[in-house]
Amino acid sequence: MELLLFGDTGWGDELFLATLMTIAVSIAAMAIGFLFALIFTPLKLSKNKSLNIIGNCYTTFIRGVPELLVIYLLFFGGTGAAMYVASIFGYDGYIEINAFITGALAIGIISGAYSTEVFRGAILSIDKGQFEASKVLGIKKNIQFYKIILPQMLRLSIPNLSNVWQITLKDTSLISVTGLVEIMRQSYIAAGSTRDPLFFYSVAAILYLMLTFLSMKLINKLEIKYSKGY
């Protein structure tokens, strides 16, 4: 137990900070994943063949190869890959690679593929009549998207997005190659340094369980709140 003390002699404070880092990088990855999903969902639903293929390639490739491989490719690809992605978003300057960005980006790309599938499913389940109704009412296409489709899509996606969140949270355990000190890396270091892997990996497991438990509680509350009135 004294191994978990806060301060200079124990690993408590380090593990606490690492837990915060896991939360931060998961949220960042989830947000980046949303961005990707908002780009690729329309592509996957597009009637244009080539756009469709691009969308399908993204989800098929990312969901078909191991997460660790995606992380390695991005990490070892380094600056080049990151700059390429940034240029897609219209940023041409020099990007300094740090562990947080690489980690969040890698997990974000993975998480985005799952979010894309969720959004796609949600849009497909929206009643076709609404598209026709808004057309009849003369509502412009982009207003139709922002005011009618998007809000419904998000609400319909909440239950499945909670699965994506769980996957994202657990995937952050794989980014220790980038040197980011999250729960897994900190336990790894502590286990090596104290030669007590059983203890520290158990602590890591408990921390992850706590995070998944608490976030599920939170998501359930959200779900109840936003399904009111339906």
Partner: peptide, 11 residues
């Protein structure tokens, strides 16, 4: 289902 596979493997 609530912990990463990597942690389980190390454990």
């Amino acid at each position: 289902r609530g912990t990463p596979l990597l942690v389980q493997l190390y454990l």
